[in-house]
Computed example of a mutant assay.
Amino acid sequence: MRVLHVISTLGPGGAGHQLRLLVRRLPHESEVVTLSPPAASTDMLRPEGARVHHLSSRGDHDPAAIGRLRRLMRAGHYDVVHTHLYRASVLGRIAARLAGVPHVVATEHHLGAEAIEGRRISPGVRALYLAGERLGQITIAASPAIAGRLRAWGVPDTRLTTIPKAIDAREYRFDPELRDAARARLDIAPGVPVIGGIGRLEPDKRFDLLIRALTEVPGATLLLVGDGPARAALERLADIEGVAGRVRFAGVVGHVREMLCAMDVFASPGQETFGLATLEAIASGLPALYAACAPLEERAAARAPVRGTQRLSRDRESLPRALRAELLCLAERDGKRLPARSTGFRYDADHLAASVGRLYERMAEGPGRRRIIAPLLAYRGRFGRKNSFPLPGGNVRNA
């Protein structure tokens, strides 16, 4: 089976890394096309044998990009086109149908309550997405929250499945040499306790709470890994709170392992997150404080909590109090790392690939769809007659 993955941007983390984990494990001939300019991070795919095409687009409404994608798809004779992220899904699904690709699937990695890939969810954005959705066969939601939002938009259950995000825990194993190198580069002395946060620097990640909490945790340094529109505001806040000298902004990194090795406690104070960075932190042997992390919440609900993890309450004092307690525990352990932990196979990269592989096989059991105009004309969504196209082989939920 030949598979073409179309992704809006193939950056070092997020959806780009999820795609790398998937491509490395799928038993199919896979190629990747990115709709952004070439980046050094794409080299991470090449050792696995995946060819990477670069095809820049000017936006979500780019007929020229659709034409280039269509030519690439026709020349490649692909059996499956798998799109990732909003722009790739809009342009890629149209191009795949124009090229006559038998099977089209999309993965929604990030679908915030208010924005997609940094843009507001306006009626036009939603309508464009839903019109394109009719040209595919199924949409994979990367979390239950994303699945719920897609249902609220009007995507039928028969065209929706949930396959959660995943990690390869081996990628985050602790290395004391990496720790020393990272701390030296960040100008952090060996004995200083480091509180860490990872993610895009935007308001809903609530890294401002970490900066305010730092004022109540004497002697500790805060390490924030990532970049985004809130960085300048966070730098100003650190200045105002008098802790600018104890905050390090590492920016975007190719892989977070080294930064995790440099930390002593991980904290994720944002409520709007799946919690993948928290899973990476516990795989590195860090104690983890979190406001939201679906996998850890599942374990806690099943009365099987993961050692060294604590869910933060909405109490303003919860975060600084928990940080102080973890640093006391760190001192009692003489700075030793906790063992690497995980939340089980459901959030492992092998499970991700196996689930997607089974989905491809189920689609291949029946005839592909080559109609192009009819799905667009038939689509009326929530504003008119319900009209859905069943998947080959029936409903494919929770693959």
Rank of each mutant, 00 (worst) to 15 (best):
S89H: 15
V90S: 01
V90C: 00
L91H: 01
R93G: 03
A96P: 01
R97I: 00
P102W: 11
P102M: 10
P102V: 12
H103K: 12
A106Y: 01
A106K: 00
A106W: 00
H109E: 08
H110V: 10
H110L: 07
H110T: 12
L111V: 13
G112S: 11
A113P: 06
I116N: 01
G118D: 09
R119T: 08
S122C: 07
P123K: 06
G124N: 07
V125P: 00
V125L: 15
V125R: 07
A127G: 09
Y129I: 02
Y129D: 06
L130A: 05
L130W: 04
A131Q: 14
G132S: 15
G132Y: 00
E133V: 11
L135C: 10
Q137K: 12
Q137Y: 03
I138T: 08
A141G: 09
S143P: 10
G148C: 01
R149F: 01
L150H: 08
A152M: 11
G154C: 05
G154L: 11
D157Y: 12
T158Q: 15
T158W: 10
L160C: 05
T161R: 00
P164G: 05
K165N: 15
A169Y: 12
R170I: 01
E171V: 11
E171Y: 13
D175R: 00
E177Q: 14
E177F: 02
L178I: 05
R179E: 11
D180N: 08
A181R: 15
A181V: 08
A182M: 13
R183T: 10
R185P: 11
R185I: 04
I188V: 15
A189N: 09
P190S: 07
P190E: 11
G191S: 14
V192N: 13
P193S: 10
V194G: 04
I198M: 04
